[in-house]
Amino acid sequence: RTGCQWRDLPEAFGPWNTVYKRFNAWSAGGKLMRAFSTLVKDPDVEWLFIDGSYVKAHQDSTGAATQVAEAIGKSRAGNTSKIHLAVDAYGLPIGFRITGGEVHDSTEAQALIDDLPAGGALVADKGYDSERIREQVEAKG
């Protein structure tokens, strides 16, 4: 197995199912996003970096009967999610978006860049190389 399974959490955290239920409740209630936003204090915006990375989803991950979007999509690797991340000059995360794996970097770039503070330079790979993104970055400063 890979990753940390809920049942394998150290006993110091309490019963694994309590941790799991609390994690889900905090996630659904927006507490985890508020904690992330609180931790992003005074980023060094001389250099900003953005990129996307795939996360392979478990083969049974798309079986939930829910109306809420789960950010799981089909890509060459199968069921995947994609994390679109922005970091500051120290490599500390300052913004992110999660989508299905089929979403191209350039599609999420506009929303990700809109959420960033103005900085000295934005560094990205060729997945973000388009005139529309260049104009948006120049307009943002």
Rank of each mutant, 00 (worst) to 15 (best):
residue 98 I to W: 06
residue 101 G to W: 07
residue 60 D to W: 11
residue 100 G to V: 07
residue 54 Y to G: 11
residue 101 G to V: 08
residue 72 I to E: 06
residue 129 D to V: 02
residue 132 R to Q: 14
residue 86 A to K: 00
residue 97 R to V: 14
residue 76 R to L: 09
residue 95 G to M: 08
residue 120 G to S: 11
residue 123 V to K: 13
residue 65 A to H: 13
residue 35 A to E: 08
residue 85 L to R: 02
residue 79 N to I: 07
residue 35 A to G: 05
residue 38 T to D: 10
residue 33 M to Y: 03
residue 76 R to K: 14
residue 70 E to N: 08
residue 69 A to I: 01
residue 132 R to V: 15
residue 58 H to E: 12
residue 123 V to P: 05
residue 59 Q to F: 11
residue 100 G to E: 03
residue 116 L to E: 04
residue 68 V to S: 10
residue 78 G to C: 00
residue 90 Y to S: 13
residue 76 R to I: 03
residue 86 A to I: 00
residue 130 S to A: 15
residue 84 H to Y: 05
residue 91 G to F: 10
residue 73 G to E: 02
residue 122 L to Q: 05
residue 132 R to E: 15
residue 123 V to Q: 12
residue 103 V to I: 15
residue 58 H to P: 07
residue 81 S to W: 09
residue 112 L to N: 07
residue 80 T to W: 00
residue 73 G to T: 04
residue 128 Y to Q: 07
residue 72 I to M: 07
residue 110 Q to S: 14
residue 78 G to L: 01
residue 104 H to F: 10
residue 90 Y to M: 09
residue 88 D to C: 10
residue 120 G to F: 06
residue 108 E to F: 00
residue 130 S to H: 13
residue 40 V to I: 11
residue 67 Q to V: 12
residue 111 A to M: 04
residue 36 F to Y: 13
residue 116 L to P: 03
residue 83 I to D: 04
residue 110 Q to H: 14
residue 101 G to K: 04
residue 116 L to W: 00
residue 94 I to E: 06
residue 127 G to T: 05
residue 84 H to R: 01
residue 61 S to G: 11
residue 103 V to A: 04
residue 67 Q to F: 02
residue 95 G to E: 10
residue 46 E to T: 15
residue 103 V to K: 01
residue 105 D to I: 03
residue 86 A to P: 02
residue 99 T to I: 06
residue 67 Q to H: 09
residue 56 K to E: 15
residue 122 L to S: 05
residue 58 H to K: 03
residue 131 E to W: 15
residue 70 E to I: 10
